[in-house]
Simulated assay, not measured.
Amino acid sequence: MAILGLSTSVFAHDYKLEPKKINDNTWCFLGKLEAPTKNNGGFMSNHCYVNTGKNYVLIDAGATYELAKQAYEKMSEIKKLPVSTIILTHEHDDHWLGASFYKKEFNSKLIGSSLINKNYNENSKTRMFKMLSEDAIKNTSIIKVDEEIKEVKTLKVDEVEFQIIPIGRKAHSSDDLFVYVPSNKTLFASDVVMNGRITSNRDGSVIGQLKAVEMIEKMDYNNLIPGHGFDTSKNAINETKQYFTLLKQRVLEAVEEEVGAANITKHVKMEEFKDKALYEELNSRNVFDAYSELEFYEEE
């Protein structure tokens, strides 16, 4: 069924968009545990709708215009509301390129990471533009954030309050945001938390990730929504905490044993995680980058 005069997209892909109900006013589309491909159409990260009464507020927007349009059509089957506001948690394109659909259809206000404005312009060709088919990426465009978040902000839409919390240091990226909804104790941690797959720490910090984990553990939440992964319970953080705790410990031990950069990925393998998605693709790079970060590290 067409929504807002738009016809449902038809292109080759191997995913089915179905919202997962988190609580009485929150639904999430949980992406596939893989890298972006032509087959998955970029549907490989999580984004969520919060019903505030008269509007939807989105936490992240998905990877493309087409995915965002399909997600909205699915949510309209539950309740058809305008999307007033989108909170974009960090600059990685699988989380925010879909905002171009909502900006066009609703003129949604975009709130989020300053790095989206700093690092991208209308001519930027991000990873999704390079990796996806023309059908999957069509209509997608770079949209600037309307309000950059520099400090903790409380946002109220209808009767629902959102707390937007900058981590304040490099963690998964250089400018990550948490979003917390006090009324139902839901914490959106984005890519600072992943489960079911290995994280990519290419733009991040082992120490920053562990500091972010400490921040999360001090918060009162019933649901924790990861940026990637299907576990949205209080236990959603467990894999992330274990991975970065062990990664730090083992790389520091290797440094102490004078293992050099050329051999670090042979010495530190993180084999507890070898059955997780993207282990072969990402783990060695994470270990190498952790060595670069921790080689001269002194405990704070």
Rank of each mutant, 00 (worst) to 15 (best):
S9A: 13
V157R: 11
C48N: 08
G5N: 10
V251W: 08
H13A: 09
E161P: 01
I207N: 13
L115M: 07
T85W: 01
R169F: 13
P226H: 01
A61K: 02
E281T: 13
K170E: 06
E217C: 04
F178W: 06
Y291C: 03
G41Q: 04
L17Q: 08
A63H: 09
I167W: 06
Y49N: 10
E159I: 07
K150E: 12
L6M: 15
E105I: 15
T85P: 01
K156R: 13
T240S: 15
D203P: 01
E258C: 08
F162P: 01
G227K: 05
G53I: 07
S114G: 05
E159Q: 12
Y120E: 09
I86L: 14
D94Y: 02
V179P: 02
N238L: 13
K156V: 11
G42L: 09
I165Y: 04
L97N: 10
A290D: 04
A136H: 04
E217M: 09
E122H: 03
F230C: 07
K130T: 12
S45M: 12
K269T: 15
A63V: 09
N107P: 05
N117H: 07
K74Q: 14
K153G: 06
E293M: 11
I22C: 03
P226G: 07
D231Y: 10
G260C: 04
E217Y: 06
Y180A: 05
Y65M: 11
G41N: 10
N40G: 08
K269W: 04
I264C: 01
A236Y: 00
A35I: 15
A212V: 12
T154K: 11
V181I: 08
K125F: 02
T232D: 05
R197F: 00
S205M: 02
A277N: 15
K153V: 13
L224H: 04
P19C: 12
C28Y: 05
D60I: 01
D203I: 02
S84R: 07
G42Y: 11
